[in-house]
Design a protein around this nucleic acid. Structure first.
Lengths: 231, 231
DNA sequence: CGGCATCCGTGACGATACTG
DNA sequence: CAGTATCGTCACGGATGCCG
């Protein structure tokens, strides 16, 4: 009576053309998710939006990703035209991954995700990793009102990063909208803590308010620093 | 010499608290992906953005999703506060899933994905499924310039849907930005083909151009129809 | 019949070890 | 340093069964 149940539930699936998994929908969002919907892919993009990086550094800033998955995603991203692998000039003898223009086009997607996810970013769980440049997207949102073009260095307790302000931060501009570490020649510098970055990104407080409060410290003497101080 | 290699590669993983898989990063984008980064989740959201739907209808419009995964995602979305299950009034004896306000907040994410994915949506592969309302996001992008509030019914070869125009389509407005099928009392109606929807969404052509060309047909006599015709 | 639950085969994922 | 190899586990997709 139960022998019949063992019958061929599934064809051996032979000769299927090993198609990469796709949603197979004629829909723009579905096509986008075919490219960036796999686990870790968008977080790798988030990393590369801050500038070219080496494999090992990517692995270090993405705790939890396994080496083979990272290698596989980078390969997929190369094949998909999102990133390229570039050899550094001779003395370095290393190679870095960097986004193509198509890859940079994902900034609005990451920004929308960050904006939506910000309210859920209240408690910092003990298992959570943190990197300073992860706060660049929330902060960029709070700086969209700035008119002066320039590079702003940001110092957090967790580390440093820098962002481009003014139209230079707009989508489609050459260069990264934000980057790791200190800037080569910043036009201004601010010091604040990560929590304040998030509040600014959520719009809970305005830039002008926290400058007055002293919760944010502005250094520099150029026009960008002046605008940050409120003239 | 090779006996040592068989040693415990992995702890039995006992007593791990069965944590739902999270990226464990104190980052807004990562938190967002903890909620909506699983396979199919954002496409379910895309469906529900068009209005409440029953389980079976969702399954029908998401070819390829297995029944258990769909049930599991819907449960996750309920638990995550993205959607609720609501019983229909007695005669229907069915229940529908609908987005919460938090869930509706994902519209900008889907819109950004659709915008980024649009250039990749050139050839329609023979394996691709199609639904009319999947073209609502690209079309909405082309209609952001409209000032008149109202409901616009859209007729494609593949079926019908309707979109809200004017400030009513803005994020945070009550009601869905777009919906399945014909509208109850549309303020205007347009007829075009899916390809044109995509061209409009990509910005390859403007609304005014295609109205003049006759590639788009505008029906109705209210102010919205007039604005669509270019006064 | 709608709304799942169960079972199974395959593939993706995560951790670790190993190699050029 | 930058991956590849290997392995255990879990997620996914497909088919089917159950239950109100």
């Amino acid at each position: 009576m139960s022998r019949l149940r063992r019958m061929p539930r599934q064809q051996p699936a032979a000769s299927r053309p090993v198609r990469r998994r796709s949603y197979d929908q004629f829909c723009a969002s579905a096509r986008a998710l075919d490219s960036v919907g796999d686990r870790w892919t968008l977080l790798i993009v988030r990393e590369l939006l801050a500038g070219p990086r080496r494999y090992t550094d990517l692995h270090a800033d993405l705790p939890g990703v396994s080496t083979d998955v990272l290698a596989s995603r980078l390969k997929d991203m190369e094949q998909g035209g999102l990133a390229v692998r570039r050899k550094l000039p001779p003395p370095a003898a290393a190679s870095v991954y960097e986004l193509t223009e198509r890859g940079h086009g994902l900034l609005p997607v990451l920004a929308a995700l960050a904006e939506w996810g910000a309210p859920a970013l209240t408690e910092r769980r003990p298992t959570d990793a943190v990197r300073a440049h992860w706060f660049a997207l929330p902060l960029l949102r709070a700086l969209t009102g700035l008119t002066r073009e320039g590079v702003l260095e940001v110092r957090l307790g967790e580390g440093e990063f820098h962002v481009r302000t003014g139209r230079g931060a707009a989508v489609g501009s050459e260069g990264e909208p934000y980057g790791f570490g200190p800037a080569p020649r910043p036009d201004a510098r601010i010091t604040l803590d990560a929590e304040l970055c998030l509040e600014l990104g959520r719009g809970d407080v305005t830039l002008a308010e926290v400058v007055k409060d002293g919760r944010i410290e502005v250094a520099g003497d150029g026009p960008l620093a002046a605008e940050l101080r409120g003239e």
